[in-house]
């Protein structure tokens, strides 16, 4: 990551923090802020999946199951049972984490098989949300969910929610940064590179995979709670396979293994899907094509683009390809 003089780094971080805090004042348009708020929810989701897919190398296609569990748990507790929203919000994340615990036997699977098993799990959870109307209100969705509240603070506008979203995103980011640089993070790295080799160094892959899976689910549950109290309406269709794939796309676009990349990827995908609306019926065709082009960028995603462009500029003429 070099290139930055060490002394200037704290200043840059400070400038970034000030800028992030000032965004709702600089750009107060409601629609824009709504998209940013949504982007923050997805940034939390993408951070969790980054830990699982990027750091530990476990491909999951069922992340929306935990996102939906957190969202519905928080909404049901707060609306139907009158539980204080901040407690409901935490309960949502805990229930999502408990659900992940039941999936631990599946973690023996690897690669494609794990991907399909998590995909199936996502479909099952979606079916439960859709069919258990007594609990979730079924296909019509759950309305009138109260806004997020923390003591006397109410986060009921796009402007106010921004600071809640920013706080949760920042806390998740900082916690994960510590985690990935710890012994735990190095163990995940070892498992990603080779499970067999990790075992010989005394690492129990299933135990680490279970832990990271539960952490990712907890984080998805937090994001679900945020979404429930931001949107104040939940529909089962917000938590389908498409959603799981969307989150995965964010992680890969931003660059595998990069936490900053997960946040940037989430923002890019949310903004792209909002602002590509101008292209109407060509929107998704364009989105699909862009996805293919992005994927050619490799493991580093967009993060690696500047370096690649610089390398291309340094070379006087493109080498003739051998293919």
């Amino acid at each position: 990551m070099g290139g930055l003089a060490r002394g200037r780094r704290p200043l840059l971080v400070l400038a970034l923090v000030v800028l992030l805090l000032a965004i709702p004042w600089l750009l107060p348009q409601r629609y824009f802020l709504r998209v940013v708020d949504l982007g923050l929810v997805y940034a939390v989701l993408a951070l969790g999946l980054q830990l699982l897919v990027g750091s530990a190398g476990q491909l999951s296609l069922g992340h929306a199951a935990f996102y939906g569990t957190g969202a519905y748990t928080s909404a049901i507790l707060a609306r139907k049972l009158g539980v204080p929203v901040e407690a409901a919000f935490l309960a949502g994340a805990v229930v999502a984490a408990l659900l992940a615990l039941t999936l631990v036997p599946v973690l023996r699977l690897r690669g494609n098989e794990l991907a399909v098993a998590t995909l199936g799990f996502g479909v099952i959870v979606h079916a439960v949300i859709l069919n258990e109307e007594w609990l979730t209100e079924g296909p019509f969705g759950m309305m009138k969910i109260p806004p997020f509240r923390l003591g006397l603070l109410v986060f009921d506008t796009e402007f106010r929610f921004y600071y809640l979203g920013l706080a949760v995103t920042a806390a998740t980011y900082l916690a994960f940064r510590r985690l990935t640089r710890s012994r735990f993070g190095r163990a995940l790295e070892a498992i990603r590179q080779s499970e067999e080799a990790a075992v010989t160094s005394g690492i129990n892959p299933v135990r680490y995979k279970s832990k990271v899976f539960v952490i990712a689910a907890f984080t998805a549950g937090l994001a679900g709670g945020l979404f429930a109290h931001l949107n104040r309406y939940l529909n089962p269709n917000d938590f389908t396979l498409t959603e799981s794939i969307n989150i995965l796309v964010m992680v890969v676009v931003g660059g595998l293994r990069s936490l900053e990349g997960a946040i940037v990827g989430a923002m890019i995908i949310i903004f792209a899907s909002e602002y590509l609306r101008a292209f109407k019926e060509y929107r998704l065709i364009l989105f699909g094509a862009l996805l293919v082009v992005f994927m050619a960028l490799g493991a580093e995603g967009l993060r690696g683009l500047p370096a690649k462009l610089a390398a291309a500029a340094r070379r006087p003429a493109p080498e003739p390809s051998d293919g």
Binding site: I285, G288, L290, L291, M295, A296, G298
Partner: peptide, 26 residues
Amino acid sequence: PVRRRNVPVINLIIATLGVSILLSNA
């Protein structure tokens, strides 16, 4: 073109997802 760049398998999988979005909307 994606494969030629030696990308991780997951990139290739997402490229196929991109193609499926493209085809169904086309």
